[in-house]
């Protein structure tokens, strides 16, 4: 079976590096691209047709929620929100859910002190795997 393909959308290079590293740490996932804003993301979705889009909410040009509106109409990709704005119960989380986000998860923190791929990245990997329908890894 082909590995689920993943597009990462975040305006921060830092976040793209951290999250990209987390995604790459799972060999059953394939990171096919990274976009720095919503407009680029929509173009990339059009050409790459990823299975899963990891999406930040607070972005210049076009917010994650706006991106979701377009995505929900033009792509079958599943959307996993990675944002510190959209905490459980927040209005953003509600809106993201209404627009079809399959998972909502906080941004990674504490990258420096811990082994990020195995500890802090765990939740993100779990969310992606759940969205992709892959078996979940054991908690490290």
């Amino acid at each position: 079976m082909a590995k689920p393909t993943i597009l990462l959308v975040d305006d921060s290079v830092l976040m793209r590096t951290i999250i990209g590293d987390i995604v790459r740490s799972d060999e059953e996932l394939s990171l096919v691209g990274a976009a720095e804003n919503g407009k680029v993301a929509l173009e990339m979705v059009k050409s790459l047709k990823p299975d899963i889009v990891l999406l930040d909410i607070e972005m210049p040009e076009m917010s994650g929620l706006e991106v979701m509106e377009h995505l929900s109409l033009t792509s079958r990709a599943k959307v996993v929100i990675i944002s510190s704005v959209a905490q459980v119960g927040s209005p953003e989380a509600g809106e993201a859910r209404a627009l079809g986000a399959v998972e909502i998860i906080a941004k990674p923190s504490g990258t420096m002190s811990l082994d990020l791929a195995h500890k802090k990245g765990h939740d993100i990997v779990v969310a992606i795997r759940r969205a992709a329908g892959l078996p979940l890894p054991a908690r490290p």
Partner: peptide, 14 residues
Amino acid sequence: RAFHSLKGAARAMD
């Protein structure tokens, strides 16, 4: 957005 991004970056770096 700018303050928000600073917060996110700070959290990522402990």
